[in-house]
Design a protein around this nucleic acid. Structure first.
Length: 155
DNA sequence: TCCGCCGACTCGT
DNA sequence: ACGAGTCGGCGGA
């Protein structure tokens, strides 16, 4: 039996886009629930304006996604991700700066970003370390590629 | 002086 | 306890 306790959150859209040898996948219903990279495409269908925006983004066009997210996460983690949404396209901040604004430690920021369920659209790749590039859930190679895509050439 | 390594410190999960 | 970090200190180039 399929459980009905899924809050009736049926996926209403989902699509995969090939980029840098990986697939970037987005899924959600009214709001975006997940965005992640994978080796194989996760969805076979595409939809709507969002798809086009994301395709433009990966072609290197400057796009800011003004989007609604569906985040069920601890308060602190959400606060960090919301802060990260304020970082404009092509700009970076470091963990320490954000930590200072939220009166916490850089380590806690990194830990929160590691849980970002909506990568790229919530641009955690724009948060780098003071002395270098810092980490990334899908590998530093992808983080660098994203930054380069946005015109950040410091790596 | 300029790195690179190391230990200490930090704080939400 | 464990990190997608940072700072200060020390030794070698």
């Amino acid at each position: 039996m399929e459980s009905e306790k899924n809050k009736s959150n049926k996926t209403q859209f989902g699509f995969s886009i090939h980029w840098e040898g990986l697939y970037f996948n987005v899924e959600g219903d009214k709001k975006i629930r997940k965005a992640f990279f994978s080796k194989e495409p996760f969805f076979s269908y595409k939809t709507s304006a969002l798809t086009e925006k994301i395709e433009k983004y990966f072609k290197g066009e400057k796009v800011n996604f003004k989007l609604k997210f569906d985040l069920e996460l601890p308060r602190f983690t959400k606060k960090v991700l919301e802060k990260v949404l304020e970082i404009p396209y092509g700009k970076t901040r470091n963990y320490g700066e954000i930590a200072e604004e939220l009166q916490t430690s850089p380590r806690a920021i990194g830990q929160a970003l590691a849980k970002n369920p909506i990568v790229v659209l919530i641009p955690c790749h724009r948060v780098i370390s003071k002395s270098g590039i810092g980490g990334y859930s899908y590998g530093v190679r992808i983080k660098k590629a994203l930054l380069r895509l946005e015109g950040v050439d410091i790596f």
